[in-house]
């Protein structure tokens, strides 16, 4: 079987299109690359949707944490503490079993036990908490002068937030937020190892990688393939976020623009 046929068969296997049965023996390199790459679709799906939706909640939580009213501040602080203080792995498990017991009482929760929705919700809340903390730090670092200038121009309330505070906050938070995005993509690999079942063996990249490692008892092929895919995704994120970063900072003189510095250790 040629490699093109393998790609045609397994390229979209992770979303249920193509050959139903996974290869059982005599794994070729092509099969491993194709299936693991097909699993990446799930990682990208989780990462993109969680980031995109989490962004808005993160902004709200960051502003909430900086609010003077304690009825707004306290819930925001607790939300951030709850999701940053506990392991994502445990959050997945808890959410899965929570949805499972809700499902037995209300039919409405039926889709929540599937990874595509349930895990997405957990990732959405989780990234909202982590980015919320980043945005909060940036919010507090907004130069006083900018806010005062906005006041002097007669901007207030929503207009001041929308045109002055929010863009500055994003600008300051962006390097750290890029990092958060990278680690969110890494965190998506936990989904199918934490209760959420991979229905009909439709799993993510790590699911297939560990499938091959278990079957061949040789970790030296599938995991480097997985690593390669993730490095590729990381490079794409860096390029995309770097472009946004340049746009956010385009009004600044050349030397005042913050360099993108990559920090790590945000594993949840």
């Amino acid at each position: 079987m040629s490699c093109w046929e393998t790609i045609a068969d397994y390229g979209l296997r992770s979303i249920g299109i193509g050959e139903r049965l996974l290869p059982r023996s005599d794994f070729t390199l092509c099969q491993q690359v194709t299936l693991i790459g097909s699993g990446m679709l799930w990682n990208i799906y989780f990462g993109v949707f969680a980031l995109a939706s989490g962004f808005f909640l993160a902004t709200a939580v960051a502003v909430g944490k900086a609010a003077r009213n304690r009825w707004i501040r306290k819930p925001s602080e607790w939300f951030i503490f709850l999701f940053r203080g506990s392991p994502l792995f445990i959050q997945f498990f808890f959410a899965y079993f929570l949805f499972l017991s809700l499902k037995s009482q209300f039919a409405f929760f039926d889709p929540f036990t599937a990874a595509w929705l349930g895990a997405l919700i957990v990732l959405f809340l989780n990234t909202a908490a982590y980015s919320g903390e980043i945005f909060y730090g940036a919010y507090r670092a907004i130069p006083r002068g900018e806010v005062e200038a906005a006041d002097a121009y007669g901007l207030s309330g929503w207009a001041r937030f929308r045109r002055i505070i929010w863009p500055t906050m994003l600008r300051l938070a962006w390097p750290a937020y890029t990092n958060e995005a990278i680690f969110l993509f890494h965190a998506t690999t936990l989904v199918f190892f934490s209760g959420f079942p991979a229905w009909q063996q439709r799993g993510d990249a790590l699911y297939y990688a560990s499938y091959f490692a278990d079957k061949t008892f040789n970790p030296f092929v599938p995991y480097p393939i997985l690593a390669g895919f993730f490095i590729l995704v990381t490079l794409c994120i860096v390029a995309l976020f770097g472009w946004v970063n340049r746009r956010l900072n385009r009004h600044l003189p050349q030397e005042a623009r913050p360099k993108m510095r990559f920090r790590m250790n945000l594993i949840r």
Partner: peptide
């Protein structure tokens, strides 16, 4: 090397790799 790749992949990898 540990930065670009999910940590859990390392965990799964090292356990078998070290053993072997």
């Amino acid at each position: 090397i540990v930065r670009g790749v999910p940590d859990i992949a390392f965990f799964l990898f090292f356990v078998i790799a070290l053993d072997q």
